[in-house]
Amino acid sequence: MGTDDVATAEDEGGLVFHPMDQFIVKPLFGGDTVNWYTPTNVTLWMFFTVVAITLLLVAGTRGRAIVPSRVQSVAELAYGFVYKMVEDVSGKDGVKYFPYIMTLFMFIVFANMLGLIPMSFTTTSHIAVTAVMAMAVFLTVTILGFVLHGVGFLKLFWISSAPLPLRPILAVIEVISYFVRPVSHSIRLAGNMMAGHAVIKVFAAFAAVALISPLSILAITAIYALETLVSFIQAYVFAILTCVYLKDALHPHH
């Protein structure tokens, strides 16, 4: 057994480094039990997310300058980016939900980016986190649809532009796809984050082997660049899908 372990370690290096260890939720101040209120590394990195968002959007805009400083123009860029997205996708009446979508977007983008710092913890790589956000969006949008349109919201599933015989079949498909939304919505984000970070760790493990370490380090660099892009794109995708779902709730008629 012991020799097997060593052999495996030499073959893959997978036993020296554990690519999934970075995702373990640990209490911050010792102890083993993770109660719901225990301050953990989740708490710490979510706190950093709040700090980073505050630094950018509150401290950065402190000057309220007509000609903005660099940080302020980044903050304005983020504001304009999400605002335009909500307006374009959800329509004019979707603008009043802009702060919620901005909250989700800023949280995800900063959690993703902070997760790229070596030794950090990526809160958005956890399905528990993304599922809660996706379910919140799903429930909000569904309830909103029924509140605004009553039973008329069900027309979302009854595609009036399709030929009549096809409609029941399409309705079944539409209902299934509607309920799959929160699943894909959450797993897409968590999966992307987890996979990217795990891949970096795997390459990092290979870096310990002298022969292939240059290749490994090159690969880490490349993956890191890709992950930076993915971090942003996933936040964008999450936000824009939220806008699309919101549009469905506001205008269920196709």
Partner: peptide, 23 residues
């Protein structure tokens, strides 16, 4: 439960900061 609790706290804090001050 731990993650969900802290997530909700974080999102509420971010929402308050954004809607009250930043936006």
């Amino acid at each position: 439960p731990n993650q969900i609790f802290w997530l909700v706290v974080t999102l509420v804090v971010i929402y308050l900061i954004l809607s009250r001050v930043a936006l």
